[in-house]
Design a protein around this nucleic acid. Structure first.
Lengths: 156, 156
DNA sequence: ATGCAACTTGTAACCATTATAAACAAAAAC
DNA sequence: GTTTTTGTTTATAATGGTTACAAGTTGCAT
């Protein structure tokens, strides 16, 4: 697992400094698996260092992005860009109802070969996104459908 | 292929009206394969109907979204949300350098079964995104690298 | 043809993100 | 141990995509 120290090393190489603010923000990012928005990270930061500004969180996340330690993620839930903080490659399941985005571990063989359209491209990574209903939303959905059925029978 | 008429029918069913503006915007969306932003659609609309307001384009695209005729797409290129206007399921290749997003046709067997984490979920669709360099950017990239190499040898 | 509901338009509001400038900290140079 | 340099934080302002709103207009059913 990646450590704050490893990233500190990368920062130093680029002539950047490891400040207490950065240390905290990076630490939070490395331990978060919820694909947080900047705002969510900011709120967590305030719990420990209430004086940190929102701008610093934006800046630090941007640095992590350019280091490749964090990635922007498809966000259909609104409220800002979400960040994927996982080091290892993985895939995603997105619940179209509650907008939750969770990591999925499954093996996917390299797919680029199957396409002649991509023969001259360099493929760096591939990511699968599954769209559907999570267990909780599946239950809610069928409940609602049953209700609508009843209303329709009752004569609208 | 989907036609404006088919969508008009869907609109009528929901008690919505088919105005000239909507007809044009829908027509543009149905024939666009470039994953346009609202702004790009708006500019195309102006070529035919210079009086249409940006708001109408936003509204119509939102309606198409709720009809499921158009989908939001991961946009890492900035400049706003991009829309996928293709009816058929397909996959994406994203060039990390020039930020182009192009459709890819390849067969992907349903992957959900391989994961026990998803056993209680309903999977509606799956989409693969390939990240890499398109042919043009691949060339530019290696050119740049050669240049940097030379500078390094020259003694910085 | 008439009337209502829906639509379009321009403007203003919103909110996430980025730019800016001044105060500040930490390390390097002297 | 100062001074200098370089990078950092902070608050505030600016930007830009998107949505809300209110007034006038239009499609369409009766």
């Amino acid at each position: 697992m990646r450590s704050v120290e490893q990233i500190a090393e990368q920062l130093r190489k680029k002539g950047l400094k490891l400040t207490p603010q950065r240390r905290l923000i990076i630490d939070i990012l490395l331990h978060d698996r919820t694909h947080p928005t900047v705002e969510e990270v900011y709120r967590k930061v305030l719990e420990t260092m209430p004086e940190v500004s929102r701008t610093t969180v934006y800046n630090t996340i941007r640095e992590m992005l350019s280091l490749g330690e964090v990635a922007e993620v498809q966000d259909l839930s609104d409220g800002g860009i979400r960040y994927d903080t996982t080091g290892e490659p993985h895939h995603h399941f997105f619940c179209v109802r509650c907008k939750a985005l969770v990591d999925v571990n499954l093996d996917l063989p390299p797919m680029a070969e199957s396409s002649t359209e991509l023969s001259d491209c360099v493929i760096i990574k591939q990511q699968l996104t599954l769209y559907g209903l999570c267990p909780a939303c599946r239950a809610l959905q069928s409940q609602e459908e049953a209700l609508e059925e009843k209303e329709a029978v009752a004569g609208r």
